[in-house]
Amino acid sequence: MAATSDPVDRRAALKAKSRKAILDAAAGLMRARRSADFSVDDLAAAADVSRRTVFNHFASLEDIVTAVAGEMLADVLDHMEAQATSAEPETVLGDLVAIASGVHLVPTIAYLVAIFGLDEHDDTRRAVLMQRAFHLFTNRMSASIATRHPEAEPLAVELLTAAFCGGLLGLVDRWIAATGAEDSPESRRAWDDLLADLTAVLREPATREPGA
C-alpha cells in the first residue's frame, strides 16, 4: 500500500513546492517593485518555473497577487495566535478586535495599498484586490476564532466574523482618505478610532427614530 501512495505523495509535494515558489517569487517582486505590476514571464523567471507551471496553479496574475496579499493578512492572524496561546480567550468580538487593531493590521494594509496603487481616479483594481484578499483573511479568521471558542455556536461565529471583516474592508477607504494610507502612530490611532465605531455598531446596531 505504501509503495502505491508514494508517487502520489511525491506529486503532491512537488506541486506544493512549485506553488510556494510562485507565491514567494510574486511576494519578492512586489517588494522589489513596490507594486503588483509584473508579467507572467517575470514571475516564471523569478520562481524558476515555466509559464505553463504558473498557469497550472493559478488562473491569472490577479489570483497570484490576491493569494500573496491574503497570506500577508493571514500572517497577522498567525502572529496573534502565537501570542495568545498562553492567554485566556476574550469574547469572540474581543478577539476579533484585538487581531484587527492598528498596531497589528495597519502596517500590512498600508503596504497592500501601496502595492495595489493609490490612484484616486481609478481605484477599482485596488478595491477588487483588497476585497479578494480580505475574503481569504475572513476564511482564516473564522476558522481560527472557531477553534479558539469551541463553546460558541459555529454559525454565530461565522456570521459575526464575516460581518466584522466586511466592516474592516469598509473602513479601508475611510482610513485612506483620513491618513493617506501612511503607517504612522497617528494613522494607527485613526484606524483604532474607526475600529471602535465598527465594534460599537456590531454590539448595538444603530437605530433610527420613527419617521426620521
Rank of each mutant, 00 (worst) to 15 (best):
P154M: 04
A177N: 08
G170F: 12
F164L: 05
P154K: 04
V172K: 03
A162M: 07
I176D: 09
L171D: 08
T179S: 11
D192L: 08
W191G: 10
E186H: 07
P150N: 04
P185C: 06
P185H: 06
A152W: 00
G180T: 04
L198F: 09
A163E: 14
L168I: 15
A190T: 14
D173F: 03
F164K: 07
A162D: 12
G180Y: 09
T161M: 03
T179R: 03
W191R: 11
G166A: 09
W191H: 11
R189L: 08
L171E: 12
R174K: 11
A181G: 07
T199C: 13
R189Q: 12
V157Q: 04
P154W: 05
R174I: 02
W175K: 08
E186S: 11
C165A: 15
P185L: 06
C165S: 14
S187C: 03
A163T: 13
G180P: 10
L159N: 12
E158C: 01
A156Q: 12
A163F: 06
P185Y: 06
L194C: 08
L168W: 07
A200Y: 00
T147K: 15
A163H: 14
A163I: 00
D183Y: 03
A190H: 04
E151V: 05
E153Q: 14
W191Y: 11
R148G: 03
T161F: 01
L171Q: 15
D197S: 06
S184G: 00
W191N: 11
R148A: 11
A196H: 12
I176N: 01
V172E: 15
D197M: 13
R189T: 10
L168A: 09
D183S: 09
L198V: 12
L160W: 05
P185I: 04
L194G: 15
L169F: 13
W191Q: 09
R174G: 01
P185T: 05
E153M: 03
A196Q: 13
S184P: 00
A196L: 14
G170K: 13
D197F: 02
V172N: 02
L198C: 10
W175P: 08
A152K: 01
L168R: 10
R148M: 05
A181R: 06
A163M: 13
A156Y: 00
D193V: 13
A163Y: 04
A177E: 13
T147H: 12
A190K: 07
R189F: 00
G180R: 05
T161E: 05
A190R: 13
A163S: 15
H149L: 07
W175H: 09
D192K: 09
T147E: 13
D197K: 03
L155K: 10
T199M: 07
R174F: 05
A196N: 11
